[in-house]
Amino acid sequence: MSSILEVKNVVKQYGDYTALNSVSLQVPQGSIYGLLGPNGAGKTSLIRIINQITMPDGGEVYLDGEKLAPHHVQHIGYMPEERGLYKTMKVGEQCLYLAQLKGLPHSEAKKQLKYWFDKFEIGNWWDKKIQELSKGMAQKVQFIVTVLHEPKLLILDEPFSGFDPVNANLIKDEIIELNKKGTSVIFSTHRMESVEEMCDYIALLHKSNKLIEGKLIDVKKSHRTNSFEVGILSDNVERLMYELTQKFKLEQTNFKSLNDEIKLNIKLDRATPNELLNILTQNGQVTHFVEKIPTVNDIFIQTVSQK
């Protein structure tokens, strides 16, 4: 699959401090790409380089196969973490201005704006100043400003921070819709559940280096532990436990259920799930049997704490 964005061995230094240490990434066309990492990992530095806000000290960036050049700004929509709007400027004028800065002609910008204002049902805000709007309302405008010029690549840094749940959902749906229409999305966030829900690719930066990159499902597969969460009602607990401990590593666990069963985490190592199931069914009634799939959160914490 072709890449909408390719980052090759990018280096960024601030004085003696290295913010990016030869980082390479490939963001596939049409993907939602999660860029993860603890604070200070270098995410914002990388995003700023992609947006040509700062220049890399080494390496190259390619957008849709072309080496990054000033005219590419019109193909990128960027919503930074630190964001805002001119408080005393009218909503309509402000949106037009920002769209024109992105290279959209005035008439085209107006047409697009009308579409979005209708969609969000905010047509009557045109002549209002940002300072007259509530925070949630201003955030809608902020989102419109980001996508107005129909970018090929959308870069969202902590997009949901500051949004109330209703607006966050609205924005999320819009992002997914844009993605379905072909927009690629880079998503930098600390909210792992939204990564889990939306991203199909992830990369993990830590201390200026890239540690993980790939399809979310592949990353999960490579981090799978072959563990199962098991619930069982047994008359002969002693024998069950004896047989299990002979073959597997277990530990007590907890999950919500309606029965008063034994709840275990069982690590299979090389055994198959069927072998485990055999032992379980011979010794009682199985009420719960689920593979423990590593969450993005688990992978994140595990990888970061290993280093």
């Binding site: 806000i53 700004v73 960027y78 930074p80 630190e82 805002g84 709007l85 001119y86 408080k87 992105k102």
Partner: peptide, 17 residues
């Protein structure tokens, strides 16, 4: 300073130098 405190600056300079 206004552009800095409004936090709009990063949006602007992602479009212009």
């Amino acid at each position: 300073i206004e552009e800095k405190t409004n936090r709009i600056i990063e949006i602007i300079i992602s479009s212009v130098k």
